[in-house]
Design a binder for these strands. Sequence first.
DNA 1: ATGGTTGGTTACCAA
Length: 263
Amino acid sequence: MRLATWNINSVRLRMPIIEQFTASHAPDVLCLQETKAPDDKFPLEEIRALGYEHVLFRGMKSYNGVAVLSRLPLSDSGSRDWVGKEDCRHLAVSVDGKLELHNFYVPAGGDVPDREQNDKFAHKLDFVDEMTAWFSENRTAETPMVLVGDLNIAPSEFDVWSHKQLLKIVSHTPVEVEKLTAVQDGLGWVDAVRHKIAEPEKLYSWWSYRSRDWRAADKGRRLDHVWVTPPLAGAVKDVEILKDARGWEKPSDHVPVIVDFDL
DNA sequence: ATGGTTGGTTACCAA
């Protein structure tokens, strides 16, 4: 099974490169974030025409939104709201009855890394805390699960272009890293990408639009993740971060992260 | 320290 996660920053605008990606890399399951489309404007028929018969999505006007596109049967497995907001940041699905997949779009958190001064940063920290609590209360490490998405945190010094220059930049502050690590430690989640491409190799999945030459500057961050619970760690066969996609026509600022499983 | 770009919406907000 080939699984991919991709923050596409508007599903409607990105249909051409979604088609390009599905044609070139043929994921069996594709998790999207930032679809930015209310459910009645989600391009369901176009996606079905690409060969994805099973589609679950939760969207809203303007912001956020998540979707799972699949060639394998899907059923909802507890998609919910977080931190008391109905803002379409999570889908939980069972994939063909074989594993449970959680697709997250964690709040970006604004610019000021101080919960007292910035409500969006407080929301982000509370969201990640609630992830830790929910998984510890509702799931165990023995459950075969995959957690993917734009977690909006680059945890390691090898996940950013400059650890020193980003320590006070939202996405790489110590408090965010500590909270993301708490989620990971809760069920012993294994980072599937680092499982295959170990540190100190630098890995990024996002490059800002605000750069004249993103490729030359290469000031990236690894914000998009694929984690698995221990029962699935041995099933991870290969991983790829598709950096080329950042250079496609009308690109997202994020690129697909692909994991192949031998289930 | 600051500004840079993009998308959704339609006056700016979020990223």
